[in-house]
Design a binder for these strands. Structure first.
Lengths: 245, 245
DNA sequence: AACCGATAAATTGTGTGCAATTTCGGTCGA
DNA sequence: TCGACCGAAATTGCACACAATTTATCGGTT
C-alpha cells in the first residue's frame, strides 16, 4: 500500500544493523526513523514520560509497531524502558556525555587509522577542499557553516575507512550526542575555536602522510578536547531535567 | 506468573542499552537474552530461516514479545529482517568478519587508552596475575584455558576504562564475533600462538607504564593479527552457508 | 518433459482486547 | 494538618484475530 521509497529512509542514523539489511526493509523503519528523529531533535524533554497512546495518534499507527520501535530505541540507548511504567527519554548525565565523547573519540581514531590504509588521493583532495572551506567559515566567524563542514569532514574520514560496521556504530553514537547538541547551543565555545582549527590542520597533515597511528591519537585528543568543552557547557547551561527522580 | 530473577539475566551481552537501564526491567529481557544466546551459540545456521511460530513454542511465549526481541536483535546486527519474509540469521561474510575485528580493535585500543588513565595498581596486579596464569596455560598447551583467561584479561582492561558505554558496545560486538568462534574451532592457530603471547607481554608492559597511546596502538595491532588469523581460518574451513542466495 | 500461471496454504504485519500492574484521588485516622 | 490506606482510572504487557503478502502446489500449455 505505502511502499515508502527505501532510499528515502537511508538517513545516516541507523542502529547496529548493517546497511545491507535495511535496503529492502522499510515499511516500519519509517516509524523507527521518525521516532528517533523526534527524540533526537529534543521534542520530548529529558526523562519525560512518553505515553504510548499519545505517540500512536501522533504517528497514526497502532501500539504494536510503536512498541517494537521503542524496544529498538531502548537498545540503541535513546530511551529507557521501565517495567510496567513505560518509556522515558534517557537522560544524559554529565558522565554519560563524557563517556559518549570518549567512545566517539575512539571510533574516530579508528576511522582515521583505517582511512590511512584505504583513502584515495581524490578523497584526500576532497577533504582538503572541505578543510579550506571550513577555514573560510572560521575567518568569517560563521559558526553554523563551520560546524556543518566540520561534520562533513569527520563523515568523510569515516567513509574513507571502508568499514560499514564502523560507520553504523559511529552513526548510532553520533545520534545520541546530537540530542544534546540541539538543546545545548554551543555558546561560548569561541575561545576553543582557534584551537580546534589548529587541530584540524594537524589532522589533515597526518592524513596526507597517511600516518595511521598519529592520526588516531590526534583524533582521539581532538574529541577529548571537544568533550571537556561540551561537558563544561552542559554543566554551566542546562542541567535542567537531568535527574528524573 | 513467572517473575524470573532479575539478577539472572545480568549476563554480559547487552545491546547499546546502558547497564543502569536494565537493572529493573527484566521480564522480557529474559527472552531477548535467550534468543540471543540461542543464535550466538549457533543453533540456527547461517542465513537460516527462523519461523516465528517455531520459536514461539520453543520459548513458550506469544508472537508479540518474540517479534519485539527480533527487532532488537536486528538492530544489534545479529539477524536480518526481510520485509514480509521474516528473520534470517545474518550471515557473516569474510568482509563482515574483518570489519568486526577492526572495530573490536578500535574499541580495545580505546579501552586500553582510557584504562591507562584510570586503572589502579590493584587492577594491574590482577591483570598480571591473569597474565602469568595464561602463560601457564600456554606452556601446557592448554588452549581452552588459554582462551578463557585471555578473554578475562581483555575484559578487565575494558572494565578499567571506567566507561559503561564502551563496555556495552564492546559486549555487543564481542557477541557478534563469538557466533563465529563457536562454529570455527580455531584450529591451526597454534603457529600464531607464540606471537600472540609475546604481544600480550608488550600489552602488559605498556599498561604498567600507563602509556595510553602505545597501548592503544598495540591493542589494535594485536586484534589486527587476530583478524588475519580468523579470516584465513574462515576462508579455509567453513564458507558453508555464507551466501544465502 | 519442462515451463508458466492460478489457486491454496502458510507466514508475516498490524490492530484490538483482556489481564496485571501502576498511579491517582479520596477518605479515614492520628 | 499530615500521613496512610483503599478504590478507581489509566497504562502497560501479552495473547489473539484478521488482512496482506509471500511461498508452495497443482493443472495446463507449448
Amino acid at each position: 500500500m505505502k511502499p515508502i521509497n527505501p532510499s528515502d529512509t537511508t538517513s545516516q542514523a541507523l542502529a547496529g544493523t548493517a546497511d545491507r539489511a535495511r535496503e529492502d526493509q522499510s515499511l516500519h523503519d519509517e516509524i523507527l526513523t521518525r521516532l528517533r528523529d523526534h527524540i533526537v531533535e529534543g521534542n520530548i524533554a529529558d526523562g519525560g514520560r512518553v505515553p504510548e497512546r499519545q505517540l500512536c495518534e501522533m504517528l497514526q499507527i497502532s501500539r504494536t509497531p510503536l512498541r517494537e520501535a521503542l524496544k529498538v530505541l531502548a537498545s540503541e540507548g535513546l530511551v529507557e524502558l521501565l517495567p510496567n511504567r513505560g518509556a522515558r527519554v534517557r537522560p544524559l548525565s554529565e558522565q554519560d556525555l563524557g563517556e559518549l565523547f570518549d567512545v566517539m573519540g575512539g571510533l574516530e581514531g579508528l576511522a582515521g587509522r583505517l582511512a590511512c590504509e584505504n583513502i584515495t588521493d581524490e578523497e584526500i583532495a576532497e577533504i582538503e577542499r572541505l578543510h579550506y572551506e571550513m577555514y573560510g567559515f572560521y575567518l568569517h566567524r560563521d559558526m553554523h557553516g563551520y560546524f556543518h563542514v566540520n561534520q562533513l569532514i569527520h563523515q568523510k574520514i569515516v567513509e574513507a575507512s571502508r568499514n560499514a560496521t564502523l560507520k553504523s556504530a559511529y552513526a548510532n553514537f553520533a545520534g545520541r550526542i546530537r540530542r544534546i547538541r540541539y538543546s545545548a547551543n554551543f555558546a561560548r565555545k569561541r575561545e576553543r575555536w582557534g584551537e580546534a582549527m589548529r587541530e584540524h590542520e594537524t589532522i589533515l597533515e597526518a592524513l596526507r602522510r597517511r600516518a595511521g597511528n598519529e592520526l588516531s591519537d590526534i583524533l582521539f585528543k581532538h574529541l577529548r578536547n571537544k568533550r571537556t568543552a561540551a561537558v563544561e557547557h552542559l554543566k554551566a547551561v542546562g542541567m535542567a531535567a537531568s535527574e528524573p527522580a
